[in-house]
């Protein structure tokens, strides 16, 4: 049974039934437990709207959302349960920090879940460790730490709720390369070691090519493609036409292919690209 299933979900944002005001149209996808899904699309493609359907923030105008096989809008009681299962990290999550100390802020979510004090403490420590926030930082005010640290503290606040599904909306936006790398690593670790399902919304294919199992491409409120990373990168033309930011290396290899070189299409990381070119060079030496 898939952990997330969307059936024909359409969302109309202004109450009218105007075709223009449909933020997402007939979206049907399913996600298996433990998968890492990357969602890509440019601004206004409906990707943020889509993920807000996953934890009862938005109610689909048409269609159904199933989490763990349960129709989340069937019963009002499901709301709290769903939010417990699905952790949503919004864009620029550091703007939601508010407690006196980082520690208290991370504890806010677990506290709302009604856990025991010991359990809360345990979870806060674990989450802080996952996002590499040191003990002395925990006692500081969330407003006097650096931007990257704030971002990680905010993510820790969601991780401490131990969601089955972690959904992130551009978690690395606006950070410097170091900060970005750290965030991507944290998400990857959560996926790998905690065996949780991850949905990662981003503009940058480069960021998720390394980590994701599947990529969902949205354009104009519709799902254009939902496939493995290998298959997604096969159609470079389509990606480019949609104005997506594809990795430089993909573009290079695509151009080489156009020039008639025999290079496989499913290469999108530097490591793979180097190996492929190296092998071709070795072949050439032999001849």
């Amino acid at each position: 049974m898939p952990i997330i299933e969307l059936k024909d979900v359409t969302y109309v944002y202004d109450g009218t039934d105007n075709l223009k005001s449909r933020a997402i149209k007939n979206v049907s996808i399913s996600v298996e437990k433990g998968e890492y899904i990357g969602i890509i699309g440019h601004t206004g493609s409906g990707k943020s709207t889509l993920i807000q359907h996953l934890n009862c923030i938005l109610k689909p105008t048409y269609g159904k959302v199933y989490i763990d096989g349960v129709d989340i809008w069937e019963d009002k009681k499901n709301l709290a349960k769903t939010r417990k299962k699905v952790g949503l990290v919004f864009q620029y999550p550091e703007y939601q920090l508010f407690e006196e100390t980082v520690e208290k802020d991370i504890a806010f979510g677990p506290k709302n879940l009604g856990l025991s004090t010991q359990e809360i403490e345990k979870r806060v420590m674990k989450a802080a460790q996952m996002v590499e926030i040191d003990q002395d930082l925990l006692l500081k005010s969330p407003f006097e730490i650096s931007g990257g640290e704030k971002r990680r503290a905010a993510i820790a606040g969601i991780l401490a709720m131990e969601p089955e599904i972690l959904v992130l909306d551009e978690p690395a936006a606006g950070l410097d390369p170091l900060g970005k790398e750290k965030i991507l690593k944290i998400i990857d670790n959560f996926h790998k070691y905690e065996k949780r399902t991850v949905i990662h919304v981003t503009h940058s294919m480069e960021d998720i090519a390394k980590y994701a199992d599947k990529i969902l491409i949205m354009n104009d409120g519709e799902v254009v493609s939902y496939d493995s990373v290998d298959n997604t990168f096969k159609d470079v033309d389509m990606l480019q036409n949609m104005g997506l930011d594809i990795p430089q290396i993909t573009k290079v290899l695509f151009k080489l292919r156009q020039k008639g070189f025999n290079i496989p299409s499913n290469i999108y990381t530097v490591e793979d690209a180097v190996n492929v070119v190296k092998n071709i060079l070795i072949e050439k030496e032999k001849r």
């Binding site: 709290a80 939010r83 979510g109």
Partner: peptide
């Protein structure tokens, strides 16, 4: 719009 965003964010942190 900022307020709306914060409300949503805190809601998903379990604020009822």
């Amino acid at each position: 719009s900022e307020t709306e965003k914060i409300i949503l964010a805190q809601k998903s942190r379990g604020v009822d």
